[in-house]
Write a protein that binds this DNA or RNA. Structure first.
Lengths: 232, 232
DNA sequence: GTTTTGAATATTGGATCCAATACTGTTAGC
DNA sequence: GCTAACAGTATTGGATCCAATATTCAAAAC
């Protein structure tokens, strides 16, 4: 029996990658702010080399933008971007759900239901970050059933693009309650094996959140939160 | 007047990136073969650092796969992958064409027509690599009209995934003739401002090429072409 | 003959150092 | 007062070196 669960990242770049992703999601690295290699490296106790490689991955995924000799900036989302992201999610999530249905059985339906419960648990605990991750686990438990890796990957990228702004959505109790209800509706549709209803539920769920993100976006320029600021 | 057009890459990593992309498209770096950092660095006259950063970008884009301490392999396409790629192209290209139509005017229709002519020119010249790039310019001249950058980017990634195999398609004169006819049909649909016909033309065009790629894929395991082999 | 151990080799991962470029603030010129 | 040249600083880009890990292959144990 191996102790595979305790596996710390085998490379420093992976550790950096994980940490920077966290900083991006939590908003410690706010959109528009420069990402300083030295500051990140020092904070994580590594040299700049693994930092640079991790940043390249994030560049390839579109989370940060790069200019030669000027470095990296956290990608900013324009309203046009947001509209595009949600249009693409509309198309691709519908496809994912459609493709997932033939693979839907009692086992993975239970898993999905448990994932929804985990969202609620994080809510009870008042763990905002936990809600975000649990919410994603819930939705991708369904999407990944489609067994279409590229589709899953693309969807994850689209989700990532708005994650920075989604935090504000979960901050309001009213939104959290609505999310709970919408998750229940989606699960009910899955129980009834009703594809179109599931797709509609997902679409409604998505449309409700886009409004919140759009508002967060148009509201005055985002500022770096109080925490660590690798910009300086 | 500046000589901006002659701008060589401002960084070595970009030069490496360009070159590796070329190697991937031409098949010099065949699917499944390892990508050796040292060999690439030596060939391009740089150290391993910019090579590693370029490879990270390609990893982020899914062109090569990475395992810690074992390095990079050129991503292989399974038949399942291929089916997925074309299903996603089906969805996304239809969306791109739909979104492009409102922006379609005489100016960019002329540009698209010229791009189609460039494909034929490359054909007359017997320039197989030229056909591939001109073909892509033609199709993305239309897709990019949608003014949906993420959609364009995703489509490019999907095209990239099969580019390695598409070379064999253009190798046959019969296929090249068919491509010409299909391009003409697509342009005719654009001229008539007939969205559905354009989408159908694109779908037929795509379906014809997928069969060829599928065959190339199922045919015995791909081997590295005669050229440079960075695998050793 | 098969499996296992271990040393030698190949390859990748990371740290440090130096070079190249961009940015900032100051001063000189008008 | 405004602009332009310039020096100093900050930051990124790249090369070299060493460490860590994986692979290979031969020899020993069973």
């Amino acid at each position: 029996m191996t102790a595979a669960h305790f596996s710390r990242p085998p490379t420093a770049q992976e550790a950096v990658l994980t940490e920077v992703r966290r900083l991006l999601v939590t908003g410690d690295l706010a959109p528009g702010t420069p990402v300083r290699q030295e500051a990140l490296a020092e904070r994580l106790g590594v040299s700049r080399v693994p930092v640079r490689e991790a940043l390249k991955v994030l560049e390839g995924e579109g989370h940060i933008v790069y200019t030669a000799h000027r470095g990296y900036l956290v990608a900013e989302l324009s309203v046009d971007d947001l509209v595009e992201v949600y249009r693409l999610r509309d198309l691709l999530e519908a496809e994912a759900i459609r493709a997932a249905f033939p693979h839907l059985d009692d086992t993975n339906l239970t898993a999905i239901t448990n994932a929804a419960r985990a969202v609620d648990d994080a809510d009870w605990r008042g763990d905002l970050a936990g809600i975000g991750t649990a919410n994603r686990v819930f939705h991708f438990a369904l999407f990944d059933l489609a067994a279409m890796p590229r589709l899953s990957r693309t969807l994850r990228q689209l989700w990532d693009a708005t994650d920075v702004y989604r935090a504000v959505y979960f901050a309001e109790a009213r939104n959290r309650a609505r999310v709970h209800d919408e998750h229940m509706e989606l699960i009910a549709a899955l129980h009834d094996r009703d594809v179109e209803r599931a797709i509609a539920a997902q679409a409604a769920h998505r449309d409700n959140s886009v409004a919140a993100v759009r508002e967060a976006l148009t509201r005055s320029t985002p500022q770096a939160a109080g925490g660590f600021d690798p910009a300086r």
